[in-house]
Design a protein around this nucleic acid. Sequence first.
DNA 1: GCTTGACATTCAAGTAGCTTGATGGTTTAG
DNA 2: CTAAACCATCAAGCTACTTGAATGTCAAGC
Lengths: 140, 140
Amino acid sequence: MRISELARAAGVTPPTIRYYEAIGVLPAPPRAANGYRHYGPGDLERLRFVTRARALDFSLDEIREVLAFRERGEAPCRYVLEQIRAKIAEIDRRMAALAQLKQELEQIQAETAHLLPESPAVEEGCVCHLIQAAPVSAGE
Amino acid sequence: MRISELARAAGVTPPTIRYYEAIGVLPAPPRAANGYRHYGPGDLERLRFVTRARALDFSLDEIREVLAFRERGEAPCRYVLEQIRAKIAEIDRRMAALAQLKQELEQIQAETAHLLPESPAVEEGCVCHLIQAAPVSAGE
DNA sequence: GCTTGACATTCAAGTAGCTTGATGGTTTAG
DNA sequence: CTAAACCATCAAGCTACTTGAATGTCAAGC
């Protein structure tokens, strides 16, 4: 099949596939006489593996490493499990950071909700007190 | 004060300050005879405003816009409140996505936890079943 | 007077994961 | 025969910076 067919089957765009090839996540496929890339079912499987791993928030570097295990005939499972463990920990950290951020934003909303509705006097000289009042804590 | 002093006071690095100046988030300060940038207390205030807004997850584009309000003598509060509303909605979306992702990762962990400990037979031909088994659903 | 170290300057490129655009060749349907 | 839809390559753009190279400036110690 040609690149757009493969792309449709995997739910990505042709440039994404060429990009994956350029950075070594996908192998360079054989070309037809006109230079068009020609893919087989194995390529679709491999690409689907990549999109699944991306959906699980693996980086392309990590995916390339997992695929390298496969090339060498080794099993990456132990490595992948370790990555998953680390990823869950990071998700917890990110969710906590987002929760704190949300709380800060909601606090600003609450503090100013009764001040703002149609009271232009409040806006004079505001530069802007909404953010002025915010803490500097959160920094990813 | 000089750039590294300003940087320390605001908790950023000198290159970050030059970057902010280059993209128009901070104004170009006057220079000493030797070409060094020279900053006053107002610059520190403005920079602190920027770091606070960044901590609230405003993009530099949004911050530039808010500061433009200030330059024009208008109050950005209403605009900022609208942004905050949108930002909270997006945080909810991102947290939901992260929660789903976490659930999928934990499911993989649970499904394989009893298989993996010291059983090399499982690893033969695994290419890798952990990710093979994962759904393709989540895509930010 | 000279060196050393800590500062300052500029410009360019790298980071992640693509997307978008320019430019041009190929194939296919009508 | 032409127009649409595909393919190719290369380059640049996106966010928010960081890092590196090459060079200039200044205060202190010998």
